[in-house]
Simulated assay, not measured.
Amino acid sequence: MAAWSKLFALPAHFISAEERYFRLLRAADDMERADLITGEEWRKLVQQAGMALASTAECMGGTGH
């Protein structure tokens, strides 16, 4: 979880929003497969990653949808 949180918090100049999103999804998948998190925790992480990506799209002039 610490590694996921660290990746989530990386500033945009270190990693693109899309790359961060896909890495966060992979990390959540890996943690669930290794039984480190529950399905409910996995869903929360995926939702957080999606919201972060959507907010970045809104900041860049997109609709975020």
Rank of each mutant, 00 (worst) to 15 (best):
E32R: 11
A52F: 07
Q47Y: 11
S16V: 03
E41D: 14
A27E: 04
T56F: 08
M60Y: 13
L36S: 11
A54Q: 06
R23F: 06
W4F: 04
Q47E: 09
A57H: 11
K6T: 11
V46C: 01
S16K: 02
A34M: 11
S5G: 02
E58C: 12
A54E: 06
A28D: 03
G50M: 15
W42P: 01
R20A: 02
G62K: 06
S5T: 11
L25N: 13
V46M: 04
A2R: 04
A3G: 01
M31F: 12
K6L: 15
A3D: 09
A9C: 06
A54P: 00
E40M: 10
A57P: 00
A57M: 11
C59L: 12
D30C: 06
A9Y: 00
A12V: 09
M60R: 14
S5L: 08
E19A: 10
L25V: 11
G39Q: 04
A9Q: 03
L36V: 10
Q47L: 09
L25R: 13
A9E: 13
I15A: 03
H13K: 08
A57N: 09
R43K: 09
A17P: 02
G61M: 01
E58T: 13
M31T: 03
L10V: 02
A57T: 08
L36K: 08
G62D: 09
K6M: 12
R23W: 04
L24F: 00
L36P: 00
S55M: 14
H65P: 01
A52L: 15
T63P: 08
A49H: 09
E58R: 13
A49Q: 02
R20S: 01
A17M: 06
A34D: 08
D35V: 04
Q47G: 10
T63R: 12
R33F: 08
M60E: 14
A27M: 15
L53M: 11
T56I: 13
M31A: 15
Y21V: 03
R26Y: 10
A52T: 09
P11Q: 04
I37M: 13
L45Y: 05
A9L: 05
G64Y: 04
F14V: 10
W4S: 05
R20G: 00
W42S: 12
F8E: 07
F14R: 14
R23T: 01
M51F: 14
C59Y: 14
M1D: 07
D30Y: 03
A3S: 15
M1L: 03
C59H: 15
A12Y: 03
G62P: 04
W42G: 02
V46A: 09
A52K: 10
F22I: 08
R26K: 15
M1G: 04
L53Q: 03
T38Q: 01
M60S: 14
A12M: 08
